[in-house]
Simulated scan of single mutants.
Amino acid sequence: MANELVVIEKSTALEVFKSSDSVEDIIRKVEQEVNSFIPDVSTAKGRKEIASLAYKVAQSKTYLDGLGKDLVAELKEIPKLIDANRRTVRERFDTLRDKVRQPLTEWEAEQERIEAEKQMLAWHEEALEMNAAFDKALAERIESDHEIALLMNEKFDRDLAETKAEAERQHIAHEEELKKQAAEQARLEAEQKAQQEIEAAAQREREAKEAAERAEREKQEAIQRAEQEAKEAQERAEREKQAAIEAERKKALKAEQARLAEEERKRQEDAKRQEDKEHRRKYNQETLQALVSNGFDEKLATEFIKLVASNQIPHMTMNY
């Protein structure tokens, strides 16, 4: 396996790839392994060992390159996560701002409605006062015209006392008609003017009512817009939250799968090393027994086997 030459803990991989010295240390370790290897092409076993070492070097390269590639991929995900969190912060804080200001917004709308009602009441009171003033003026004018007519009648009576009764009746009738026409004209003019004022006041009242209704509609529309925007922002934040949770879940699952795979790989390698160690111990024991049975001292035979196994005696190897 590749880690027989290179082993890097995933938690320290970033520190390793950030340091040229660390990478050089790994390469030097592999170079030492390669340089200490003595190739032997004269036997099938020797050729197999050459191919095995070359394969381990190639696998180490693939292992290191893949580890670096995984690191780059993980680091590229960090800006995306930061941008997503920034977007969440902006939207959530905007929602909080609107929520905090909502009572003030409603209060301001209510103040506008109250002012509109006050204005409407003021116009209504003004119209009532004007109507009262017109009624009073009309009554005063009618009373004055009546007094004048009475005085005129008295004068006419004195002046025409000596005229014929028929002429007097005609004159009185004529004067009465004139008075009636004048009073009727005054009444019509006063009523027309009062009606115009009443209509103007009613128009102002209608306009004030329309303004109040318009203000109320705008208030309700603003409230509905704010509620809709808050709802949409909350739904959008919830969707992004669930997406982030799902991404984290997938990431955690992937990490857990990688951890389990790594543990399985280590377990298999440990088992292989233990098997190889047991195999070598058995062969070394058999070799020791053979040497002792042929007259070798057990202690010297043990040291001899260690020297051969560690390739410290030229032209001699242990065939495991």
Rank of each mutant, 00 (worst) to 15 (best):
E110R: 12
D135C: 08
L150H: 02
R97T: 15
L178I: 10
R87A: 15
A161R: 06
D157I: 07
D157C: 05
Q102G: 11
I142H: 03
E126G: 14
E112H: 03
N131K: 11
L160E: 00
A109C: 06
E117A: 15
E91F: 09
R141A: 07
E77K: 14
A161M: 09
A161N: 04
E117G: 10
E112N: 02
A137W: 05
L138E: 03
K80E: 08
A122F: 04
T163N: 10
A149P: 00
E115T: 00
R113K: 05
T105F: 05
L104P: 05
W123R: 08
L104K: 00
T95S: 13
Q170P: 01
H174G: 02
H174D: 03
L81N: 06
A149T: 04
E147I: 02
E129T: 12
L104M: 09
T88W: 04
A132W: 03
E177S: 03
L150G: 11
E147D: 05
A139Q: 00
R90T: 15
D98R: 12
E117Y: 07
A84M: 11
Q170V: 14
A127G: 08
A173K: 09
L160F: 13
A139R: 01
N131P: 11
E77T: 04
K136P: 13
R92N: 06
L121G: 01
E168C: 14
A139Y: 01
M130Q: 05
L138Q: 10
E175H: 04
D159T: 15
E129R: 07
T88N: 12
R101E: 00
Q170H: 11
W107A: 15
Q119E: 09
E91N: 13
E91P: 14
D135S: 13
W107I: 07
K155C: 14
D159M: 14
K136A: 15
A167D: 03
M130R: 13
N131A: 15
E154R: 01
M130S: 09
E110N: 11
L160N: 08
T163D: 09
L104D: 00
H174A: 11
H146K: 03
V89F: 02
V89Q: 01
